[in-house]
Design a protein around this nucleic acid. Structure first.
Lengths: 233, 233
DNA sequence: CTGCGAAACGGGGTAAAGTCCGCTTAGGCT
DNA sequence: AGCCTAAGCGGACTTTACCCCGTTTCGCAG
């Protein structure tokens, strides 16, 4: 009976029933989202449909937004893996600039794919660092440091993080009316990001950012046509 | 008698009592905010304290966030005036690059000043363009076009808007616990913005060397992150 | 001054998030 | 196996944004 075997650091393992319930809730939430959309998912509704008490739902996720964050987490982890140990240029091995550009494109596509849930994971009255954003921040900081050391690096990193994640999570989301945002937008913002990065690193003389020949599997249909103006509502 | 005198375009003037009540509500709201902070302002509380019905409050502002947007509006308009017809470099007359930089600094300071209210004006489930952001977008677009024409201008503009406004309304706000964000942050993000713009326009060879007390190659006196259980592997 | 239609008002009603606390149960210990 | 306690559970309760609709008021025309 030595209580010092695990003095700190391991808060305690999670009880089996708790795990079971969490997974059941997550599964149920996914069903409800697929069936009726994110904002038809209410805490009472979820609890009832899962056959559990409302208190349990809150105990597991803390807040409504917490559910969506948990839902996103699995995919986020997969994305993270691609970045940390996948093939270049997204993963390690390519030049920093290439990686910056690849990261921006991949992240844009990711956010577009997960737009509804990512948005629902936001929490009025809490800052954003919803795990995803902070990875972006860390990663951008590292690559920027290598690719183009500059003054005020930390603040610039925060701003570029916002530039990358802000538009898709915040500025352009459709309220709930159908139109889940033209999928071409991914390529569109990806191209813009590339322009931004290339100019940051090489200056304006760099060749125009056409021809994104980044051809990993994240390339969900960018049949983007140029020349359209009007960027946002 | 002639209903075609004002056929369209002028929905109708606002009734005198309506105006009076709106102003009274705004005044009351300001008092409550000053006394107890933004999130102690509830619709019922405001209505009661103003001696009006709850329905009236909603009729005037539509939604809770609407109140804060209305509150911000006056200051926002004043800011807008400085930009559109104040003295350079913020107002017209200076070089586009100068104006871009000045705008970023001024906007940063503005947002920092109005952080609490701006944040409260956000509306879960509606995109952001809360009037303020769209002015930023328009203005940035115009100046960018003059200062450094580039491909994908519209999307880049959206991203830069996010870079400018995102950090202060989203990524860095204090939940409600005191610490209203170090006022030095204004200069900090202003400097970062300047770096960003100068590199976008001139490339990395440009010598920054500007005012401001930050001049190291990469400073780091910046809040990185708070208690984050099990950080990223 | 009087009548009238549209706008504004009031406040009770609903739905959904989040809190509390007494009861139940998993799972380590003896 | 039986105990014991912290973790987990449920659901009533509270708070708040937001809706609805019968009633009141404004302000214009005659």
């Amino acid at each position: 009976m030595d209580p010092f075997l695990v003095p700190f650091g391991t808060p305690r393992p999670e009880r089996a029933d708790a795990v079971r319930n969490r997974e059941h809730l997550l599964r149920t939430a996914r069903e409800m989202i697929a069936a009726e959309g994110v904002d038809k998912v209410t805490m009472d509704g979820l609890a009832e449909r899962a056959g559990l008490g409302k208190g349990t739902v809150f105990r597991r996720f803390g807040t409504r937004a917490g559910i969506f964050r948990a839902l996103l987490d699995a995919d986020e982890r997969r994305f993270q893996e691609q970045v940390l140990s996948g093939p270049p240029p997204l993963g390690p091995g390519a030049e920093p600039v290439e990686r910056l550009i690849a990261y921006g494109r991949a992240r844009t596509a990711f956010l577009l794919d997960h737009q509804a849930i990512a948005r629902a994971g936001l929490d009025r009255n809490r800052p954003v660092p919803a795990s995803g954003a902070s990875l972006t921040q860390l990663h951008l900081r590292m690559l920027l440091l290598q690719a183009a050391p500059m003054p005020h690096l930390d603040a610039v990193t925060v701003q570029l993080t916002a530039a990358l994640e802000g538009p898709l999570v915040l500025y352009l989301s459709r309220p709930e009316g159908e139109a889940p945002l033209d999928p071409g937008a991914a390529g569109f913002f990806g191209d813009a990001w590339q322009t931004l990065i290339e100019r940051l690193v090489h200056g304006p003389q760099a060749a125009p950012a056409r021809d994104s020949r980044h051809d990993s599997r994240h390339d969900n249909g960018h049949d983007s046509r140029r020349g359209d103006r009007k960027g946002a509502p």
